[in-house]
Design a protein around this nucleic acid. Structure first.
Lengths: 337, 337
DNA sequence: CCTTTCAATGCAAACGTTTGCGTTTATTTA
DNA sequence: TAAATAAACGCAAACGTTTGCATTGAAAGG
């Protein structure tokens, strides 16, 4: 396991190790012939460049950090996948960390990535006050948030327009003649959820409907949370004609509870999701939903981060992307009743 | 963005930077009082230790590399999740790389991780000859393969007993009186697929059934591959009473094609999967399948790797885990016909 | 009171690179 | 033919740590 260094190949060739370094990096100062010899012996000796030593002197690691609130979430893993792809395309590696919904752990992994000298960090905040706990470290490494920015905080971010998404979805349900729509999701916590809830509320008001929530003690948007919540809803007689779930995972949980309760979707009740995760499109799920443009978000996030890295004088920038409606089979029109 | 180093805090305190280092690492050689002062000024100045510099001298990075053949695969992301968790629990960080089914890229990311001086690598090989292309680098960093080892290669690995899995599954279908079982999956490529195919073949033979394959030009185990293959199968009259899909993703694709073709599962044909990915358990999918003990595999993989790292004199070790049958609703008994 | 011991700290090398600057040798110019 | 230029390469510092060894000062032992 003992590694061969630049000095080893220099010794074999009888040149200085500076020459080897230059040959390897393609410097024009080294003759074509010695370059060939260097490359040759490097291959023979199995030399591989030690990037941690290299990073010490060039003061870059060419590694990007990615912190997700939880990797279980299929939305996250899809996005992580796209981000990895884009990062590699631009010559960077990714170091993935999981905050597991815990602000304390989020802070810890942020420090850790900073300590590992990553060139930049892409962060999915666990809560809307992640900024506060991360603030002390934010100055030490370029960071872009993947979340809307509620209070004009001095950060760069890219996000989907969540407000517009739920607003759009609510109007869609309204256009299908639904008048009693139940919103299943949290109203607090992350800015994402706040915005989604508000878009629903405003769209309801604008169309003379009364917003109606089901609050729960399940803090995260998992399938099982959706299942548990919906089970309570379905235990009583239905008082709504549609459910707007704040995330697809919740919606899939609703689907599960509905099947158990013998409630048909969309015949007995319509169901609308948000995110458009991979499984929403499966025919046995077939969920109508609001799409987040994941690939675009991923691309823009790493590009924005790289901009910040290359030009640190740059101020804070942000992009808000527009969500769109994907019609599948989980919502029906009440007109043909 | 200029970082404060150990020298900076030493200068402020008027001590040597060796003292600061020792205070930080909790060495008993430094007095309690100076330690307190050091910690204090570190906090004030916002010092964070530079792990890449540290790694240079201690010759460890405390980072583990994980190479997956494709992260899209839900099985992979579940496993990656568990591996990350276990690695962190044992004090290591994870660097995740995607080979995207490409042996060339696999080789490239392996070199890259080695160059970044990761302490060890966990690898899901893309194909059964990944070993050959990786061989030159294998000596430079401890590696454990997540795949069965067909030819007694000198590697450590941990895997599920794929042969036993399909054997078990085939026998289960046989016990439900199925006599014409179609195997949907590849027979070549990775050792995983070879073993699975062989387990099916042998179990068939043992029970006097003729193995029957549907070969395809779709190289990967995705939902869409399963969908495309099954669509062809369902275009003709059914000649089998059960389909054994080599992976759950393929099976879910079959489900999709079946629904489109108006074929009911399990009424018209039974369906058995392999892996037990998260979605297999969803009530609208409800797939009977062979489970890989993912969490156990993840834990054992990082523990095995850490053993190798701590004691490099250790030889090659391996563990083969036993898969188990998870009965849900996609297979029916032909007895009650 | 001198020597020994020990606790606390400082010095400096080392890790494997990159790179500015100096040096050598060969080539060109006047 | 001497001087100037250029091409190719070597020297050594620097990056921010850790750590073996040397040094200091004070307490303890005889």
């Amino acid at each position: 396991m003992t590694k061969v260094t630049i000095k080893d190949v220099a010794k074999v060739l009888g040149v200085s190790y500076a020459t080897v370094s230059r040959a390897l990096s393609g410097s024009p100062e080294v003759s074509a012939e010695t370059r060939k010899r260097v490359l040759q012996t490097c291959r023979e000796l199995g030399y591989t460049t030690n990037y941690v030593a290299r990073s010490m002197v060039i003061k870059r690691t060419e590694i990007l950090g990615l912190i997700v609130s939880n990797i279980d979430n299929p939305f996250m893993s899809e996005l992580a996948n796209h981000i990895e792809e884009r990062a590699r395309a631009r010559g960077y590696n990714l170091m993935l960390c999981n905050a597991s919904h815990d602000t304390k752990q989020e802070e810890q992994v942020f420090q850790l990535l900073a300590g590992r000298q990553v060139d930049g960090i892409i962060l999915f905040p666990t809560t809307s006050n992640s900024y506060q706990s991360l603030k002390p470290y934010l100055s030490s490494v370029p960071t872009v948030f993947m979340s809307e920015n509620l209070y004009d905080l001095p950060v760069s971010y890219i996000a989907v327009d969540n407000y517009r998404g739920t607003h759009l979805g609510t109007e869609y349900l309204h256009s299908l003649q639904h008048r009693r729509i139940l919103y299943l999701g949290r109203r607090k916590g992350s800015t994402t959820h706040k915005h989604r809830a508000q878009g629903y509320i405003d769209a309801c008001r604008e169309h003379g409907m009364e917003p109606d929530f089901v609050d729960s003690s399940y803090p995260y948007s998992s399938i099982s949370a959706g299942y548990q919540i919906a089970r309570n809803v379905f235990a009583k007689p239905l008082t709504h004609t549609a459910i707007f779930a704040a995330t697809d995972s919740l919606a899939i949980g609703v689907l599960q509870a509905a099947q158990e309760a013998g409630i048909r979707i969309p015949e007995d009740i319509s169901l609308l999701g948000f995110d458009d995760i991979l499984h929403a499109g499966l025919p046995t799920i077939n969920l109508t939903t609001i799409e987040q443009p994941k690939k675009t978000m991923a691309t823009m996030a790493v590009d924005m981060l790289l901009d910040k890295i290359r030009d640190s004088s740059k101020g804070y920038s942000h992009s808000i992307l527009t969500p769109s409606l994907i019609v599948r089979g989980s919502c029906r029109s009440l007109e043909d009743v």
